[in-house]
């Protein structure tokens, strides 16, 4: 077969070599290298969005503070009587998870936006790795979630929060939060590629994320809830990760919450993640 000639300058790489085994190995390596490179490229695009869009940046900066202040000062006095530890110590891990779940929910809204605006057509006509379109958004929102966690912890410490669980567990807090949110981002991605419309994506986000984050140990101890709610809150993955984060910061059993959190995260990334990628590839 005659290779097409580029008009001038750059030429794309020729098709991979021909023996079946070499081809298989070559294409896996080739795939892998470009998945990373293309994902990095699209992550960069998303991060530029945060830099250039003050509204997105401001809501990422002030959103968690609003919740932190509201619950600490307005509700803290009333709710705080039901927690064994200082309410702000109790609250912070919950606020980290709750707000950053909203942060990574942007993944799906953004993907839906890309589809609406015809971006996805351009991407799909390029020789890039297809999973990078979703991957880039997931990684970018995770990075934002990580920095948002650190920023929120900083403010919380200023207004009186303290770590009582040791140095290393405390240090691992933002990483655990980011890791879980990374997993959760894939759920949002699945929503985004399924509905393909920003309005619908954001209302689903709202009506799923609010109950899910509130019906957990995020803001109040589960024991204060009615029995039937306790059952739901108990199995809610948000409760698992909030309890894990709380015990990392304040001391307490870790492994018992780490295992379910880890399993949920793995399920989100590999189960939901492959479903989302599959749906994306099937778009026509």
């Amino acid at each position: 077969m005659n290779l097409p000639q580029a008009v001038n300058g750059w030429r794309p790489e020729p098709p991979a070599p021909s023996t079946p085994v070499r081809e298989a190995i070559g294409s896996v390596l080739y795939e892998f290298r470009w998945i990373i490179a293309d994902t990095a490229m699209l992550t960069w695009r998303m991060l530029m969005h945060y830099r250039r869009n003050p509204e997105m940046l401001l809501s990422t900066i002030f959103g968690p503070l609003m919740f932190l202040f509201l619950f600490t000062y307005v509700f803290g006095g009333a709710i705080g009587r039901s927690t064994e530890i200082n309410y702000i110590d109790y609250l912070l891990p919950g606020v980290l998870i709750q707000n950053n779940i909203f942060t990574v929910m942007q993944t799906g809204i953004g993907l839906a936006d890309d589809m609406q605006k015809g971006f996805v057509d351009r991407y799909r006509s390029l020789p890039m790795a297809r999973s990078a379109v979703i991957g880039g958004r997931v990684v970018a929102t995770t990075v934002i979630a990580f920095f948002s966690a650190i920023w929120t912890i900083g403010i919380a410490v200023v207004i009186g929060m303290r770590f009582h669980g040791g140095f290393w567990p405390g240090l691992s807090l933002p990483f655990v939060v980011a890791l879980f949110c990374f997993g959760f981002a894939w759920i949002s991605a699945l929503v985004g590629v399924s509905v393909r419309d920003t309005q619908t994506a954001s209302s689903i986000t709202f009506f799923v994320a609010i109950p899910l984050t509130f019906l957990s140990s995020t803001f109040v101890p589960i024991e204060t809830m009615p029995g039937w709610l306790q059952a739901f809150a108990g199995v809610n993955p948000i409760t698992q990760v909030v309890n894990l984060s709380r015990n990392l910061a304040q001391g307490g059993p870790i492994a018992v919450y780490a295992l379910p959190t880890f399993l949920w995260t793995v399920f989100f990334v590999f189960g939901i993640g492959s479903l989302a990628t599959w749906r994306y590839k099937r778009i026509s």
């Binding site: 790489e13 530029m48 020789p127 890039m128």
Partner: peptide
């Protein structure tokens, strides 16, 4: 299909990088 929040140069750059 150009990104509103990127500059013109960045848009071209991104497309080029995605062409590898």
């Amino acid at each position: 299909a150009v990104d509103d929040l990127l500059t013109g140069r960045e848009n071209i750059h991104m497309a080029g990088r995605l062409y590898h």
